[in-house]
Design a binder for these strands. Structure first.
Lengths: 365, 365
DNA sequence: TTTGTTTAACAAATCGATTTAGTAGAGCCA
DNA sequence: TGGCTCTACTAAATCGATTTGTTAAACAAA
């Protein structure tokens, strides 16, 4: 609370203050402030004086002290962004968030909690200390309400004051399983996400439900759980090794996300299996590199950039209106078919993240 | 300068102020402040009173107003981080930076300029307005000095007040070309990076120089320039298409970075060429997914996380000592040999980012 | 001439801390 | 009693803005 590192007063070399500017002009700080802020009260000040003020401000390169202003106005134009780690997934969301925030003059603090429960608890407080006006959480299990508006991406808890931006996971499961079943697969292995990921439960529930509805049996031996979470493909590798070691037969695999799918593909190939000929693989997210892998990944696309934009817009809207905002905003997934589920002859050139290949085939292989 | 979005006073619901706390205790704000900050002047205050203060602070959940404090002390504990875009490369660096900053109670603002010169000019000013104590730039061509300490990662300009954290590009070129030549390659194609990337010039110069020294001819027809910069592999794809269209023969390719290498591999394969059998490919950076690609990428590893840490440490050190700091800090690259330059029989399992495969072969293929 | 209104500004309080320069009272000594 | 040193605090200035309530002067209306 009172950490106070030594020395260093680099904030000192600031330019002129409002007072100095006013003095230079032979006016009072009040007048200058009113004019600079185009306050209604400045209406009575003659245009000539106003121009004089603006000119002097430019000339002396006057820049208002943000802290002094924030202290007085109780507005910080700061948003906190809390995530587990800077993965591809988070980076895309953050791009979308940043776009919208800067558009309205906001900046953001980002912080990675690495799934450490203490940090998940502590960071929102630290951000509050720094007077953020609101918080966006990404894949972060918040435990309780906070004294400012929160928008949660892929959070699924029902917490007062928190707006959830969520993917329609049921639809996602339908797309993935529908595709695999149309391709003739019946022995499908499933990755269950790591416990720390807040999408895990919801996604798994949806898969089970949809599989049931489609009459697809989910063999317990083919359901494997990812035990740890990293932003790197080593997340999926050992899981497939376990699966293969069990001897259980399967012709397709629905991974938890693209990153684990990539690790899975690697493990399959290292075991001498071909993708998609021996095992078809479906990822989740559609991160940019999914289109460029070999084989390119069939995946359930989350509109990540868009989700980030929506989260930021929703938060700004809540701040503007000072209203509780919606409990939930849903976005729709999309099936992107690429090589990892289709045979060589049928595949086509990947077109990067904005031109997903959408030529779904209706015949099983 | 005076943008003032409407309404919303969500910063309002703050807890007790120092004054309120002092009143509650029947003491003056001065006393409470001295004790809370463990100031030397608090030495004369009896332990019992101190405990009383701490207890009350905890009880009323007193949290100092950061802006008020910053205004008074002229310290913000804020650092700016400026980058082109949130790529894998940037994400890793940023992780390293964040680690070091949070360790000392600093937060950071991140902003992506997307290589827009106006934003490159404007963002440092906006950050100054927000009273950052220093700035870390990543792959960003700064034009001039700034009124606070700056550490630049992969910046190569010599600007007063800017410490450069740079890779030893000569060594990098030696590692890459040495490896390719030992593998028997003589017709090597080269990617020259996009003009906007600040590493481009230095890296290219080093390659030319080392090639000359090694007696390797760089055919103009095999030197292709990447025309645009994205964080995605579509950066390398069209370049290889051009190269192939030119009809010039080559057996190896040294890409600008891993991302463009991945795009290149894809283009080669789409053209019916095998990697590494027909064309060997070397990347640059060693981003996490390089090890998981098919084929896994041989690459020149930059210790990105470490570079981020070094940048942050250097900046904090400069702030602490209020000194200009070193002009330059160099870090060493490392050759990581994987499948994209070695034939199938010789390859081994990738071990993720921390266990690079180092069994360099001395026989040409 | 008096009153009222508009114009063009300013003084001073305020936001919530930090920090310097004091001060009232106790204790001790001569 | 006076003078000195501690002890345990506090008053008040300050950081740099914003904002409310006045005010002096000019002008218009009665």
């Amino acid at each position: 609370m009172s950490r106070q590192p030594p020395g260093g007063k680099s904030t000192k070399n600031r330019g002129v203050s409002l007072k100095a500017l006013a003095e230079h002009l032979g006016l009072s700080p009040a007048t200058v402030s009113l004019v600079m802020n185009r306050a209604p009260a400045a209406a009575s000040i003659p245009d000539e004086t106003q121009q004089r003020i603006f000119r002097a401000a430019k000339e002396l390169n006057y820049r208002p002290n943000f802290y002094a202003r924030s202290l007085r106005t109780q507005r910080s134009f700061m948003i906190g962004v809390l995530h587990p780690d800077l993965s591809d997934y988070v980076a895309l969301l953050t791009s979308g968030i940043e776009d919208q925030l800067t558009r309205e003059g906001y900046f953001y603090f980002a912080a990675g909690h690495r799934n450490n429960p203490e940090l998940i608890e502590e960071y929102p407080m630290l951000m509050m200390d720094r007077s953020v006006e609101g918080l966006i959480t990404i894949d972060t299990p918040l435990q309780h309400s906070l004294p400012f508006p929160v928008v949660s991406i892929s959070g699924h808890r029902n917490i007062p004051g928190v707006t959830n931006v969520v993917l329609d996971h049921r639809r996602a499961a339908e797309l993935a399983l529908g595709h695999l079943m149309r391709m003739g697969h019946r022995e499908i292995a499933f990755f269950k996400g790591p416990k720390v990921s807040s999408d895990t439960e919801e996604r798994w529930r949806s898969i089970c439900e949809v599989a049931g509805r489609m009459g697809l049996e989910m063999k317990p031996g083919l359901c494997v759980e990812i035990e740890f979470s990293t932003p790197f493909p080593d997340m999926g590798y050992p899981v497939v090794q376990r699966l293969l070691a069990s001897g259980e037969r399967f012709t397709a695999l629905f991974a938890f996300n693209d990153v684990s799918a990539i690790g899975a593909v690697r493990a399959l190939r290292d075991a001498g299996l071909r993708v998609p000929e021996d095992v078809a693989v479906v990822g989740f997210d559609d991160i940019p590199s999914a289109a460029y892998h070999t084989p390119s990944l069939t995946t359930i696309r989350q509109p990540l950039r868009r989700m980030g934009e929506i989260a930021a817009q929703t938060l700004l809207e809540r701040l503007r209106k000072n209203s509780p905002g919606p409990k939930e905003v849903a976005v729709e997934p999309e099936l992107v078919i690429r090589e990892s589920t289709t045979s060589r002859l049928q595949r086509s050139t990947p077109r990067g993240i904005d031109g997903p290949v959408q030529n779904e085939l209706s015949q099983p292989v």
